[in-house]
Design a protein around this nucleic acid. Structure first.
Lengths: 192, 192
DNA sequence: CTCGAATCCTAGCACTGCTAGACATCCGAG
DNA sequence: CTCGGATGTCTAGCAGTGCTAGGATTCGAG
């Protein structure tokens, strides 16, 4: 049975290679440049091989999104762990979020801008996404304020961060006010 | 010279027809369905005619965006004009904004999600866009709070609305909490 | 060693945005 | 009224897209 195991392992390796290559290509040249042909060429296989791993391009985007969600959760937890006060934790969280979006624009797009065929805010939402939301909520719960549902508060705070992330990346906001916007958001939304 | 004038008028009419048809098609079936072929067929001309009016598909999206920006500004001003207190004005503004995004998803996408080749937050930004931002700022300035730049405050409030609009439309937020999110946003961000 | 199954690739479909070049139509000068 | 030229429009085509049917090849089990 060892032969089959090796084949399975090789298949899993190749699947990871596809996702990693798609991500790399997307970060380098944008998702538009991630065509099935180019992707196939980079992994040194023919196009149909991609379809033996994923139903289509959208599922590849979804795979990159899930990978990104996990990393984002780690980044946010790491940032908040080092902070002492609630104020600092929220600020660190917001910074970590926007930093991630800034440094991994393609992954961020896969997560929140493109259609990766994933379910959000539902029962069948993948664990990685639930956990990323949980990472947000852990820090935001303590500053939601009395009588405000932590989930709703997290949604609002997240939406604000998302708006800032997307609008500033598409150059629809003034770049020089980035820090002021973040401070304002934290000071006003969080109840300290 | 009257012949030339008539021709110019007809050309302008056709241009409006193109934009209106593109918008209609996008609202009905999404921007993906707005192909140059389908669009050409609907206006009962051949494809190259589109390119005698616009440089390409992106410019058509841009034209729809500008049209939408004007309408959005009107809608927001109308909503705030009827309100008496600052609190009511901000709430009405936020409602009007999200309502517009909800009822004209394709136009909203053209404005803030897709690339219409337009400049934002710059000197050469089209008047329609500047005016839409101005409409936001008119109401938001009075609740920015002391020592906070109205422009920065408007950017933050707008980004929050944008985040809510996009995330809820892509079903990434719980639909049932829509009203709670809006109240929370207004209560926390605005200084009353 | 043979045979069947698993694996992979070539070739192609229907579509996309966009454009070159042929064709028709109509205007204004003579 | 005629004719040349400009203007307007269309047909046909290019290079690219996501995706897939069907044939060739490889490889392990018996």
């Amino acid at each position: 049975m060892s032969v089959q195991e090796r084949k399975q392992r090789e298949r899993a390796d190749r699947e990871r290679l596809i996702v990693a290559t798609a991500r790399e290509l997307a970060e380098q040249q944008g998702w538009d440049a991630v065509t099935t042909r180019r992707l196939a060429e980079r992994i040194e296989y023919s196009q149909p091989v991609l379809y033996s791993h994923f139903r289509g391009k959208r599922e590849i985007i979804g795979a990159v999104a899930l990978e990104g969600a996990s990393e984002m959760a780690v980044a946010m937890r790491a940032a908040t762990a080092a902070a002492d006060t609630p104020r600092e934790r929220v600020a660190a969280l917001a910074h970590a979020y926007l930093d991630f979006a800034d440094r991994n624009p393609a992954v961020y797009d896969a997560l929140f801008q493109l259609d990766g065929g994933l379910a959000y805010a539902q029962d069948d939402t993948p664990e990685q996404l639930k956990d990323a939301f949980a990472a947000l909520m852990e820090t935001l719960s303590e500053v939601a304020g009395d009588g405000v549902d932590p989930g709703v508060f997290t949604e609002v705070f997240w939406a604000s961060l998302h708006g800032i992330a997307t609008l500033s990346r598409s150059r629809r906001l003034l770049p020089e006010d980035a820090e002021k916007r973040l401070e304002l958001l934290v000071d006003r939304l969080a109840v300290l």
